[in-house]
Simulated assay, not measured.
Amino acid sequence: LVGLGFERATPSLVGRPAYHPSTLLKLYIYGYLNRIQSSRRLEREARRNLELIWLTGRLTPDFKTIADFRKDNGVAIRKVCREFVLLCRRLKLFADATVAIDGSKFKAVNNRDKNFTDRKLQARMEQLEQSIARYMDELDRADREPTSLPDERIPHLKEKIESLKAQVQKLGEIEVRMRAAPDGQI
């Protein structure tokens, strides 16, 4: 443990002896394997879990000691993990087909503009067609009754209609790609 860089691996000649790094390393690895990251929960487990009581030799370090061990010996803990992987390779415990999966979770972005199925595409097309029809009705009303709509709103409506028509065209291109997709969706 001294060679890996653990602090307090050799006991001090004065004062009360500290917890040996091997005990705290066992506790840390137990927490890692059992998904217990909190030093407070590890402290609780060291007092109640028979497996951990046996593993630590009935020693029950408090949460601050566990947290400080992690903080002070992070580099040494990484070296232990590296040495473990090297040992497993020397013993030929790893094969080329070994796959490691972690439990990371990522929030996906799959909003309505990025996910298309046949039903969603048709609903979106109908919605755009209705919006175009509504804007066209407003323009027709403005032609019949010039005072019902301010003059500065007319170019804005025409711009909106062009934008919606471009979206309809884009959805048409997506529909062609979707029909060619093996699972019928994009």
Rank of each mutant, 00 (worst) to 15 (best):
134 R>P: 01
182 P>L: 14
160 K>M: 08
94 F>W: 08
179 R>Q: 11
180 A>T: 06
133 A>D: 01
131 S>I: 12
172 G>Q: 12
54 W>E: 14
184 G>N: 12
38 S>A: 07
128 L>W: 07
135 Y>P: 02
96 D>T: 07
51 E>M: 06
129 E>T: 06
6 F>W: 07
97 A>E: 13
99 V>N: 12
74 G>D: 05
161 I>R: 01
81 C>A: 14
92 K>Y: 06
144 R>G: 00
50 L>I: 15
163 S>H: 12
83 E>S: 13
148 S>N: 11
67 A>T: 02
92 K>L: 11
147 T>Q: 10
58 R>S: 15
69 F>Q: 05
37 Q>F: 13
127 Q>V: 08
69 F>H: 00
85 V>Q: 02
130 Q>V: 02
180 A>C: 04
17 P>Y: 04
167 Q>Y: 08
33 L>C: 15
65 T>Y: 05
65 T>H: 06
77 I>G: 03
35 R>M: 07
177 R>C: 09
62 D>F: 10
160 K>P: 02
148 S>F: 14
109 V>R: 10
49 N>S: 04
89 R>K: 13
97 A>P: 00
121 L>C: 09
170 K>N: 11
158 K>S: 03
186 I>Q: 03
161 I>F: 00
11 P>S: 13
47 R>G: 07
70 R>P: 10
59 L>C: 13
103 G>H: 08
15 G>D: 02
52 L>Y: 02
60 T>S: 10
56 T>F: 08
15 G>F: 02
164 L>S: 09
165 K>V: 08
96 D>L: 12
82 R>V: 13
20 H>W: 00
132 I>P: 05
59 L>H: 13
143 D>V: 10
80 V>D: 04
107 K>F: 12
40 R>T: 07
15 G>W: 01
124 R>L: 15
169 Q>N: 14
23 T>Y: 02
50 L>H: 13
99 V>E: 15
155 P>E: 01
79 K>R: 14
94 F>L: 10
33 L>N: 09
48 R>Q: 10
43 E>H: 03
181 A>F: 09
82 R>I: 13
101 I>C: 12
33 L>T: 10
117 T>W: 04
19 Y>D: 05
169 Q>F: 11
73 N>I: 01
94 F>C: 03
162 E>Q: 14
140 D>E: 15
66 I>N: 00
126 E>I: 01
172 G>Y: 01
34 N>V: 11
64 K>P: 05
13 L>I: 08
62 D>H: 07
96 D>Y: 00
39 S>E: 07
82 R>H: 15
58 R>H: 07
65 T>L: 10
141 R>N: 06
111 N>M: 04
56 T>N: 13
95 A>D: 12
30 Y>N: 09
147 T>R: 06
45 E>Q: 10
83 E>A: 14
24 L>F: 05
94 F>T: 04
171 L>H: 10
124 R>T: 15
149 L>G: 00
